[in-house]
Amino acid sequence: MLKIRNYIKVKSIAEAYELNQKKTACILGGMVWLKMGNRNISTAIDLSGLGLDTIQETEEEFIIGCMTSLRTLETNQALHEFSHGAVKESLRHIVGVQFRNCATVGGSIYGRYGFSDVLTMLLALDTWAEFYEGGKIPLSEFVNMKKNRDVLVNIRIRKTPVFCSYRSQRNSETDFPVLACAASLLGEETRTVIGARPGRAMIVGDPLGILKNFREMTNKQRAAAIASYAEYAADHVPTGSNMRASAEYRTMLVKVLVRRTWEAVGGMKNEY
């Protein structure tokens, strides 16, 4: 059972940072994961009094407070439109509405869980993690950083024009994904993210430039490029086995989901 000695609802991020320097301290997110563990927490730090539970939209970006619930993220209309429905698709399978009302964006991102749909999705956008001490770091960098004792304050999604698509394969509708895939045309960049490999989400990369100039391609060219890139991804994304599926099956899914998400991004087919 989770044990907590002190609970402090902080008045500022600075206070949270200060308290969090102790190894046995812990910043609370939505508690849906934390409460399952057997941790002994000396000081539980609650950020819920700092108004960090909303999404602000500016000309340049969406600023998502770390305490924003997954449900708030899912139901944000502007973000929904901006992501062509991908953000909602990445969230709606996560357990249930009540769960998503509790779980926070900050908790989901900070934990960098292997099964995370949210992390997979946000990696496909121009997303930055904003820390109290470390400042703004591209999410793609943060995802591979070592854990430290900094405080995640906001998630910022820059409004770089994007076409994107999100798909996941699950054994049942509200289960963890067996594989998750997000594809995006981010300005001129093509980005493909695979999550639940079952390891942590990763950006696949396109060193051969298979998808280069995707925007300018004809549908026929796109189809050929997508097929070839799907093969590339299947060859290069490390997958593993767990009780939900084998590495072999996951690799097969990489190919299928990469193709399907890119077909959707290319506006060619989106009916699976």
Binding site: G96, N171, S172, E173, T174, D175, F176, M243
Partner: peptide, 25 residues
């Protein structure tokens, strides 16, 4: 389609919660 009580090689149940043993929603 998916319910399956699985065991580790040492005989421990792997589906020890509703998170790991999914009943139909």
């Amino acid at each position: 389609l998916y319910e399956d009580v699985q065991y580790s090689p040492k005989g421990a149940v792997r589906n020890n919660s509703f998170m790991q043993y999914k009943i139909p929603s």
